[in-house]
């Protein structure tokens, strides 16, 4: 319930940004547009909302940003190497996350971290297939996924 209200307000703000005018009229209009959107999407909005999660979500966003910068640094080093001596490969990484929403977040986070790119899920969705640019580093990548990413995502969703 609360989550839906928050989502509604966010939609109203996005509407104001799109209109580039910050008046109460546009906020109200955006809110009405959001109401319509929520009405059509109500089937997908069953989970509830706590404020603690907003904080965890901001932490997750910062982790995203930090990892993105680190990934770029790593990639530049590989690209500018005169001889490209990489050993790419596809590795299977099991995940403990349960819901689709958590797995989607994890897949995105992996795609933006150094040397890894999510490629596919297994049938039951418990194993992620990751394309790694340097297979010898895979232990480090897997450990990072389990210890820092999964934990950060669980803080947001539980």
């Amino acid at each position: 319930m609360q989550f839906q209200i928050l989502l509604n307000i966010v939609i109203a703000f996005i509407w104001m940004l799109l209109q580039n005018s910050f008046t109460i009229v546009h906020f109200v209009f955006g809110y009405i547009v959001g109401l319509g959107m929520l009405f059509f999407l109500r089937r997908f909005l069953r989970f509830d909302f706590y404020f603690r999660r907003v904080y965890a979500f901001i932490k997750l966003l910062l982790l995203f940003a930090y990892k993105l910068i680190e990934a770029n640094w790593d990639l530049i080093k590989i690209i500018l190497r005169p001889k490209m001596d990489i050993t790419p490969g596809i590795i299977a990484v099991p995940t403990e996350l349960k819901t689709d929403w958590e797995k989607t977040l994890l897949a995105n986070l992996i795609s933006l971290t150094p040397g890894t790119l999510t490629m596919d899920f297994s049938e039951d969705g418990d194993i992620l297939y990751i394309h790694a640019i340097n297979v010898p580093d895979k232990e480090k990548a897997i450990r990072e996924i389990h210890e820092s990413f999964e934990k950060a995502i669980l803080e947001v969703t539980q």
Partner: peptide, 10 residues
């Protein structure tokens, strides 16, 4: 150069 392909196995 690819060293490992777990997806193919699966």
């Amino acid at each position: 150069q690819t060293e490992q392909d777990d997806l193919k196995k699966a």
